[in-house]
Amino acid sequence: MKHRIIIIVEHFGGKLNPVTYELASFARELSTFSSLDPHLVILGDAVERYAHDIAHQTGFDVTAVEVPGLASYNAEVYINVLGELIPGLDPVYVCCAHTSQGMDFAPRLAVRLGAACITSVECLHEEGGRIRFARAIYGGKIVANVVSGTQLTVITVLPGAFPPPELENTEPGLVILSTIPSESHRSRSLETKLCRPVESVFAYARVIVSAGRGIGKKENLSLLEKLASVFPRSAVAGSRPVCDVGWLEYNRQIGLTGATVTPELYIACGVSGAVQHVAGMRDSGFVVAVNNDKHAAIFNVADVCIVEDLTTFIPLLVDECLRGSSRGDRDT
């Protein structure tokens, strides 16, 4: 029997997290280098229905583990159950999403399993008979290519890095049911509560002007607001550090722990381009980046790059846009 790539399915609030299909895509790519069988695992207290859905969508076999009383994710239970289950599945890799959930249990599960843990993987390739996992370091300015030194490796996969392919008609995989009782004694889940409004402030924005730490001070947001006002249906957004210092509300945060947006135009001002932010805007239509650091990682994901101090450049841009519009008005 072939060895396996184990994929941990993520689900929340009665719904499967679509990032699971990205993990399946990652596993497919990994299996082309390594001739391993992808195999999904899902835990919870009513998971059989998800199991059939994903077995159907991916064509992979699924082990659905009923854990009585596990209504929602709990790290202690996940690590205990997976730590017991996975060794018997002939694993070579265990893949999780690089989400708050994956980041919470993957490193601990790796220790439990005696495995290396490589997080936030964006890309992989084979060289010299070994699989190299690529991950961003130094704010995204450098890529580290890493190989595992253990027989079993736990990977967290960066959301957005392995988009799932179009659905094909595949033979559904097998669903294997089991029950493993487990309770959390030392870290009890109490509740999951909604703390921020679900409605996105970006829902109707065609153009987003976003602020990174490079704007320097809160007052400089007014430059971005002026720029945004040049475009109909626009919004001002920011990276997490800008929200942390209170310059913008967290509902304006774009990134891995904030909103994911796909406006037609994204203008990033003073944004460094760290992967955590880029994950939230990488699928924007057209990206313009303004930063006075010519090595800023944002320039790798921009269509147009302006290496300038934004406090000088943005007012000039706004002037051009306003003059351009009035030229347009005169001409009509």
Partner: peptide, 11 residues
């Protein structure tokens, strides 16, 4: 956690 939610725990 994602989506504006928080997971509340007692450790």
């Amino acid at each position: 956690i994602e989506g504006g939610y928080r997971d509340c725990l007692d450790l």
